[in-house]
Amino acid sequence: MKILIATGIYPPDVGGPATYSARLAKEFPERGHDVKVLSFGSFRFLPKFARHFFYFINVLWMGHDRDVIFAQDPVSVGFVSVIASKILRKKFVIRIAGDYAWEQGVMRFGVKELLDGFLDKEYGFFVELLKKMERFSARHANTIIVPSNYLAGVLQKWGIDKSKIFLIYNTVSFLERIPKKEARRKLGISQDKNILFAPGREVPWKGFKMLKDLDIQNARLVVGTFPRDEYTLWLSACDIFLLNTGYEGFSHQILEAMAFGKPIITTDAGGNKEIVKNGENALAVEYNNKEAWRAAITNLLADPKLQEIISQGAKETAKKFLEKDMAGETIKVLGSVI
């Protein structure tokens, strides 16, 4: 099978879509498939409209000998890719790991609601245009892949027939765990200080501002986006992994923290409900509830027994996802449309 992966970002860019696309680009050829990758990141140096035009031209050029075009979002790469697939008469599959219109609405157009509240409301011209674009891509796809039941439900609220939607959970990316003391030595931090690790993009729904306002005694909060090697060091070195989020399609980072056996505090937002079991493999706390978060962190730091319970439960949960064959399941879905 000849596949064109159209992705918004790709290594050395950091983020879930980059990790996902790179993993498939490695595993598909190992299983006998011919893969090309086209990253929108290669065109970001161009003026805004020019970058989309030249990306479209390149989808046409690179897609002409492909069996299927596999887009990784419904707008920035998906919208032009579905049009190119129609021109080329190629099969088109899209993976939707979030609501692009909502994300852009929050970051650029003043949307205040979280995703569940956003779906049933109308907004200004640009947000409604993005809604139409992502739903156009979804309607005209031969098949849609989602990483959680939660997102399958979101797409059904868009009006997409559930028979077109296939659930393929993320699997745990391989990260080399480093002994905690060694990781701290490499980072140049004290062996005695409690490290609270909250990685991720600085987007409004991640709730970093509230975490930064917490004052936890004898604890250092580490927040931000990190290169992969440094991220692995901090994940190895930390005492508690934090994800104060108002929205998750399905979190790679929670799975990675679980695989490392880290005590986790997060929310039950979105797809988190499908992996987070409060008191068993994580603590689930209300999004942006400052006092609840302070209490959860303080109590967990003071309770080694609870830390061990959550750590063991987290590793058991991660093991289930390590056993999943994400690439194999994706190949089956792509092959089914040809």
Rank of each mutant, 00 (worst) to 15 (best):
K290N: 01
I331F: 10
E286W: 01
S21R: 08
L214P: 06
K36Q: 13
L119G: 05
K90Y: 00
R201M: 10
H33T: 04
L4K: 06
L301H: 00
L322V: 09
I331L: 15
N281L: 05
M62L: 15
F136A: 01
K36C: 03
L187E: 02
F136Y: 15
K320R: 15
S76E: 12
R184M: 05
S148H: 08
N288H: 01
M258E: 05
V223M: 08
E274R: 02
P12M: 08
A296V: 13
L221Y: 11
I69V: 13
L114M: 14
K86N: 01
Y231L: 15
L322I: 11
I69R: 08
F197M: 11
F70C: 04
E280T: 04
E103C: 04
P304L: 07
T266S: 13
V14G: 01
T7H: 07
F109A: 04
G200N: 11
R51E: 12
G110D: 10
I178M: 11
V154C: 02
H33C: 07
Q307K: 14
T267D: 02
L233A: 06
A141K: 02
W102G: 00
N288L: 15
K157I: 01
I145R: 06
K305Q: 15
V93W: 12
G63C: 04
Q104A: 02
K273V: 15
L175C: 02
Y231E: 05
K290A: 05
F56D: 08
E308I: 12
S163R: 14
E308D: 14
A101Q: 03
L221I: 15
P17T: 04
R51C: 06
K121A: 06
V59D: 02
G328N: 02
S148N: 10
A6S: 14
R108F: 12
T225A: 12
V93L: 08
D325N: 14
E308Q: 15
P263L: 07
P199R: 07
E291H: 09
S42K: 15
H140A: 00
S81M: 07
Y20K: 07
S39C: 06
G8D: 09
H252K: 07
K319E: 15
M210V: 13
P17F: 05
I145Y: 05
E202W: 14
L322R: 11
A97Q: 14
E128K: 11
D268W: 05
I275G: 03
L4P: 08
G98C: 07
A295S: 12
P29E: 03
T143M: 13
A101R: 00
E323V: 04
I254H: 02
D99C: 10
Q253Y: 02
W205Q: 06
K2W: 06
S76R: 13
P199W: 13
S85W: 05
